[in-house]
C-alpha cells in the first residue's frame, strides 16, 4: 500500500524532473543529457526577442493579477467574515464559481466581451481574466486566516481611538499578513501558469510565456521549450517554499 503510494507520488514528480533534465541536453531533440550538459537552450531563450518579450509580459500580468485579486479578495473576505449579510452563502458561491466552470466556456465568453472593449490587446484584460481564477483561491486562504483573528482585538482598537482604516492598518493586516503573502504567491503562480484563458485573450502584444510555449508543444518540440518551462518553474518555485512555511507546524493559534 505504502509503496504503491510512493510510486504514484514519484510518477507525479517525474514530468517536472524530466523537463528540467532535458533543458540541459546538447541534443536538438528531446533527449536526456548523457555525458555533456549545456546551457545553450537558456542562451537561446534569452537571445530571442520573442521569448524575452513573453517573459516580460508574463511578469507584468502576474503582478497585476496578484494586486487585483489579493486586494479584492481581502476586502471581500473582511466583509463576509466580519459582517452579517443576507445572501452570504450566495455571495460565496458566486465568488467560488469560476473554480468549477469549464475554463473554455469562460474563455469563449471573455473573448466575445473583451473584443468589444478597449482592453483588447492590453495587459489589463489578461490580468482581469487571470484574477477571475485567482480570486477564489486568494479568498479561501484569506478567509481561513481572518477567521482566526479575534474580533475583540479589532473592537479593542476601536475603543482605544482607532478608526476603521487604522484598525485595519495596525491590527487586522499585521495579523493576517502571512495569509496575504501566501495569497499573493498563489495568485502569481496561477497567472504565470494560466494557458486556457490566455489562449483566447492574448494578442501579439500580450503573449505570455505559456502562450509562446503552446504552439511549440503541439508541433515542433525542441529542448528550448524545456528551458522555457524551467524558467517558469524557477519563477513559481518560491511560492512552494512559502506554502511550506505557511503549513509549518505551529504551537497555538494566537
Amino acid at each position: 500500500m505504502k509503496r504503491l503510494a510512493y510510486l504514484v507520488l514519484g510518477l507525479l514528480l517525474t514530468p517536472m524532473a524530466l523537463s528540467i533534465l532535458v533543458s540541459f541536453t546538447p541534443s536538438r531533440y528531446l533527449e536526456l543529457p548523457r555525458d555533456e550538459w549545456t546551457l545553450a537552450w537558456y542562451r537561446q531563450f534569452f537571445g530571442s526577442p520573442v521569448w524575452v518579450q513573453a517573459l516580460g509580459n508574463s511578469l507584468v500580468i502576474a503582478a497585476l493579477t496578484a494586486a487585483f485579486s489579493v486586494t479584492s479578495a481581502l476586502a471581500t473576505a473582511m466583509a463576509l467574515v466580519r459582517h452579517h449579510f443576507r445572501w452570504k452563502a450566495a455571495w460565496e458561491g458566486a465568488l467560488l464559481l469560476p473554480m468549477v466552470l469549464p475554463s473554455v466556456a469562460l474563455a469563449a465568453g471573455m473573448l466575445a466581451v473583451v473584443r468589444l472593449t478597449p482592453l483588447w490587446g492590453n495587459h489589463l484584460s489578461l490580468a482581469f481574466a487571470h484574477s477571475v481564477l485567482a480570486i477564489p483561491v486568494a479568498y479561501l486562504v484569506l478567509r481561513a486566516s481572518l477567521k482566526q483573528v479575534d474580533p475583540n482585538l479589532e473592537a479593542a482598537a476601536r475603543g482605544l481611538g482607532a478608526g476603521p482604516w487604522q484598525v485595519f492598518r495596525f491590527v487586522t493586516l499585521p495579523l493576517v499578513i502571512p495569509a496575504v503573502l501566501a495569497a499573493t504567491l498563489f495568485a502569481l503562480v496561477i497567472s504565470l501558469n494560466e494557458i486556457t484563458l490566455t489562449l483566447f485573450l492574448a494578442t501579439r502584444y500580450t503573449e505570455t510565456l505559456p502562450r509562446v510555449i503552446w504552439p511549440n508543444l503541439r508541433f515542433a518540440i525542441t529542448p528550448l521549450v524545456a528551458a522555457a518551462s524551467v524558467i517558469l518553474l524557477a519563477l513559481t518555485l518560491p511560492a512552494l517554499v512559502a506554502a511550506g512555511w505557511w503549513l509549518r507546524p505551529r504551537r497555538g493559534n494566537r
Partner: peptide, 30 residues
C-alpha cells in the same frame, strides 16, 4: 457614536491584547 469617539476604556474578558505588539506598544496604542 462609534467606539473611537467615546473615550471609554474597556478591558475585555479575554483581554484582547494585540499579539503582534510588545507590552509597551499595546499600552501606547491609544
Amino acid at each position: 457614536l462609534a467606539p473611537e469617539a467615546r473615550n471609554v476604556g474597556m478591558v475585555f474578558q479575554n483581554y484582547a491584547l494585540f499579539p503582534h505588539m510588545s507590552v509597551l506598544d499595546n499600552v501606547e496604542f491609544g
